[in-house]
């Protein structure tokens, strides 16, 4: 269950690319144990938002606080400490092609300067792979895996550091409906098992319906509407209603 303790707070966030104002005074809070889906059209700034949160993009104005620490002006060392507690599942999975599944999972552990023995590393890798049901793929290369398996491995890599917050960038894009549904179930299971907070970028309405505790509609760069799936489904504003009426595609 979501608590009243915010783990992430975004205030008055602005981000532009030339004359394209992607985020305009975006405000948002994510609470502990909560799954929030950010819903928006293609090009509305969903991915820009998530990249600002993880520090891959610098906002023009505004503040992003993660665990009560403002990440805007953090140096690399402090940012890495925050990133160790925030998992990121990339839309394209971003598995390292030249590494095996084991090496892909070990990479974040070793890079975050974790003082863990090889035995502990093996145990953590096995546990993360078991969480996603792919323990048998440990010595395979990413190229040998199907799209759904790659997504699960990417999720296992995200989970290996036991993050408090997980950012999902369109987790079901490019997957068939059955595999997409399995990934959504996995996301729900992970939340239950580890009590993580999640920010999910999606326009897959099945994902929005099943995975969200709360939905945020991103429109014109602002947090246009927020509420549960059911409350927004019955919203009278046409800009909100359109998301629930149309099965729009990117």
């Amino acid at each position: 269950m979501a608590s009243s303790e915010p783990v992430m707070k975004i205030s008055h966030l602005y981000k532009s690319f030339g004359n394209n104002h992607v985020l305009n005074d975006f405000n948002f809070e994510l609470y502990k144990g909560e799954n929030v889906v950010v819903l928006g059209k293609s090009g509305s700034g969903k991915s820009v938002l998530i990249k600002c949160i993880i520090g891959l993009l610098k906002p023009d104005q505004g503040t992003i606080e993660v665990f009560d620490q403002c990440i805007n002006d953090m140096d690399d060392a402090d940012l890495d400490k925050v990133r160790a507690r925030v998992g990121f599942l990339f839309q394209s999975n971003a598995l390292y092609d030249s590494m095996t599944v084991r090496e892909n999972l070990e990479f974040p552990l070793r890079r975050h300067w974790m003082e863990v023995s090889q035995e502990e590393v093996n145990q953590m890798v096995t546990e993360a792979l078991e969480d996603v049901g792919l323990a048998h793929t440990i010595d395979m290369m990413p190229v040998e895996l199907s799209g759904g398996m790659r997504k699960r491995i990417a999720l296992a890599r995200t989970l290996i550091l036991k993050p408090d917050i997980i950012l999902y960038d369109e987790p079901t894009t490019g997957l068939d409906s059955i595999t997409g549904s399995e990934i959504i179930s996995l996301m729900i299971e992970i939340k239950k098992k580890y009590n993580t907070s999640s920010l999910i970028i999606s326009h897959d309405m099945n994902c929005v319906r099943r995975a969200s505790d709360r939905v945020v509609v991103l429109y014109d760069g602002t947090c246009y509407a927020t509420g549960t799936y059911t409350s927004l489904q019955n919203h009278t504003d046409p800009k909100v209603k359109q998301f629930f009426e149309q099965d729009f595609k990117q």
Binding site: I54, L56, A84, N93, A94, D97
Partner: peptide
């Protein structure tokens, strides 16, 4: 690596 976001993934992994 750039177009498949592997470089971003590296940055997120503390590298």
């Amino acid at each position: 690596m750039k177009v498949t976001e592997q470089i971003d993934a590296m940055e997120v992994s503390g590298t």
